[in-house]
Amino acid sequence: MSLNIRTRRFGKTGICLFFVSALMTAGAGHAQQTDTSKWQPGKGEFIVPAGPGGALDTAARMISHLLQTKNLYPNLVVVNNPGGNMAIALNALDKHKGDGNYVMTSVSSLMNQEILGKIQHKLSDYTEIATLFDEYVAVAVRADSPYKNIHDLIAKFKASPGTLNVGVATSIGNHIHVGIASPLKKAGVDISKMTVVPYKSSSESMTALQGGHLDVVAATTPNLIGLLKSGAIRVLAIGAPDRLSSPFENVPTWVEEGIDVVPSSAQGVLGPKDMPKEQLDVWVDMLATIAATEEWKAFLAKNHWREHYLGPEDTRQYRAREYKQIRTVLTDLGLVKK
């Protein structure tokens, strides 16, 4: 009935023009939808190469939380895959080649394990999505330690480098080990002769320090805050470019002490091998968005981490420079196979 009315009112020519116009409008709408559409994340996993509660897990859960609350990635869960010098987590990521619904924490220690030959994976084979922040390694002793400052400790290491027990978590040759060895090497210590004891976590190494089983502990800042505030430990130096806020405001950096080294460790997000560009672009946009939020900035400040946002290409270049520096230190430690 409606068509007959239009026929009488507009005639055959009008009908043709009407349908042509309708088709063009529909086609334009479809083209516009195609041009502006992006890859839409589905049900995803954020793989963490460590157990719950540590720095890697804490950061991953905050990233997942912000992505969900900002409605950027509503269905992303954190999955802990510790062990195997991070190989277990990488194996889990390898099951999802080319699938951006699966990502993992990108951390400097992955290169340490690669250089040491403890894993058969190469970080450069994966898709670097972004660098998000730097964490810093500090050197701590008990409050009653005879070493009042970092130069006292350096003098002892130079005189007899193997007599002090140094605790690190979680493995020999990781970023925490490098975080203390790198500046000590610069200061003239024979780091290959140091006695380094690995612990399962920094909480365990800090307990051992308080119990008198260790003389020195190297650990990242979140693990030291409570004991420093209580007066149980003294932090002698920190590997940051400049001083951190309370409770570290009185702790000098290595650079301040005349040792020009900033042995930071960067965290970010790593994608699987052969991740399509359209998926990478969406991830870059999502991470850039949450990195600009006040919630993220407050989270970094609380943990005494420093914002260090880099996109994919800058991250690859940054990791390449890190790789060379890490390899040099691990070689000097006598840990790299010839």
Rank of each mutant, 00 (worst) to 15 (best):
residue 10 F to S: 06
residue 73 Y to S: 09
residue 12 K to C: 04
residue 111 M to H: 08
residue 48 V to E: 01
residue 282 V to I: 10
residue 122 K to R: 15
residue 39 W to L: 08
residue 82 P to R: 05
residue 271 G to R: 01
residue 117 G to F: 05
residue 170 T to M: 01
residue 129 I to W: 00
residue 107 V to N: 00
residue 194 M to P: 05
residue 81 N to Q: 14
residue 1 M to L: 12
residue 163 T to W: 04
residue 62 M to W: 02
residue 271 G to Q: 07
residue 295 E to V: 07
residue 316 R to N: 13
residue 35 D to P: 00
residue 94 D to H: 09
residue 33 Q to L: 12
residue 220 T to S: 12
residue 183 P to C: 10
residue 256 E to C: 09
residue 162 G to W: 05
residue 324 K to P: 02
residue 116 L to V: 07
residue 261 V to K: 14
residue 17 L to R: 09
residue 43 K to M: 13
residue 169 A to I: 05
residue 63 I to T: 00
residue 327 R to V: 02
residue 220 T to P: 04
residue 60 A to R: 03
residue 234 R to N: 15
residue 151 H to Q: 14
residue 261 V to C: 07
residue 160 S to V: 13
residue 102 Y to K: 09
residue 141 V to I: 13
residue 214 L to F: 02
residue 238 I to M: 13
residue 207 T to G: 03
residue 268 G to L: 01
residue 74 P to V: 07
residue 275 M to Q: 11
residue 186 K to A: 15
residue 20 V to L: 15
residue 51 G to D: 13
residue 288 A to C: 08
residue 135 E to T: 15
residue 104 M to C: 13
residue 312 P to W: 06
residue 72 L to F: 04
residue 211 G to L: 10
residue 252 P to S: 10
residue 220 T to C: 08
residue 27 G to E: 11
residue 108 S to D: 15
residue 322 E to P: 02
residue 190 D to I: 01
residue 302 K to E: 12
residue 66 L to R: 04
residue 1 M to G: 12
residue 288 A to G: 14
residue 196 V to H: 08
residue 332 D to W: 04
residue 295 E to I: 04
residue 171 S to W: 14
residue 211 G to T: 02
residue 183 P to S: 06
residue 309 Y to P: 00
residue 241 P to Y: 05
residue 315 T to W: 09
residue 113 Q to W: 11
residue 222 P to V: 09
residue 73 Y to Q: 11
residue 189 V to N: 01
residue 12 K to M: 10
residue 219 A to L: 03
residue 173 G to H: 10
residue 118 K to Q: 13
residue 262 V to W: 04
residue 261 V to Q: 15
residue 104 M to P: 03
residue 218 A to W: 01
residue 3 L to K: 12
residue 98 G to T: 03
residue 260 D to Y: 06
residue 196 V to E: 09
residue 289 T to V: 07
residue 131 T to N: 10
residue 61 R to F: 03
residue 125 D to N: 15
residue 300 L to V: 01
